[in-house]
Amino acid sequence: MTNPALNIENLSVEFASSAPRGVFEAPSTFRALNNITLSVNPGEVLGLIGESGSGKTTLGKAIVGLVEQSSGSLVVNGEALDATKPSDRRKLARQVQMVFQDPYSSLHPRKTVGYTLAEPFRIQKTAERSNEMDLVQALLERVGLNPQHAARFPQHFSGGQRQRIAIARAIANSPSIIVADEPVSALDVSVQAQILNLLDELRTQENMAMLFISHDLSVVRHLCQRIAVMYLGEIVETGPSKALSANPRHPYTAALMSAVPRVKAKNKARSKPIVLKGDVPSHDAIPCGCPFHTRCWLYEQKGRPARCRSEIPKLVEQAEDRQSACFFPEDVAVSAEGA
């Protein structure tokens, strides 16, 4: 069996809390990520969804070593790496690459695109100087840009083209995995599809693994083979994308799916969206028991079972390669109809 491209176990990240505190209290921290375990195989795109503040970007940054993990392990392509060790940092940079949301701020405005794309080869010493230009041109071609444009500066490129350049830079040294944080969110719909097709090609033709962060569930379902759903710094559900979107096993996933504004299909009545009450609680005041119970429609529907308030549901393996952190996974899809 081949190694997973990425395997993380019980990864947690803590940040200093901004909540007001008394003069004599020690500075408090909160867990932005709590015991995250997941793996991504070569040739697989794992989609990460969840509301703002749920910890998606923090997880991405922890994987590339941009934020420090307080505990947990990170294994890339079979090799355990520790971002706090300088020797591992370099390997990490080679093996894990990140693509960010904003294509306007992620490229250096005063460096030519050719220079930006040659940098990964220089840093990792993976190419001879004489060979660099050929590699850069091949990269540009690979992401659908004109190889002759290497001498141009970023401002000559549109948002979509800049995102292609950012992707080219990320794949320069054939990393084990790419972490893409909302890579198409800043792009117009008509341009998004171009980038999504490119990412899908990289996966099918080059067996690329990717963690794809997005708040657009239709995009995630289309591009990703598997989906992980986050709520308040934890993963609450995972599974194959089609099955998870059609038959969620966590009420939060069901609510997310039903909140997607759809273009109404012909002669089809619109099913009523499940509207969740209120906002996501703050990290400083995570509810007792199931962290979702303050907004959970299934909890209400079931007459507020005491267990949901007293016991923390664990992410439990289920049939068909699925996991859910709800006590009643089987009831979600059925009950969502009438919610």
């Binding site: 979509g160 097709n197 569930l217 239709s218 995009v219 759809r262 273009v263």
Partner: peptide
């Protein structure tokens, strides 16, 4: 526009983008 965005309820192999940019 309608075909450039994937649907949550139907499968598409490949998206049909609009070429270029506005």
């Amino acid at each position: 526009l309608l075909s450039a965005h994937p649907s949550l309820d139907a499968d598409q192999d490949r998206l049909t983008p609009i070429p270029g940019a506005p």
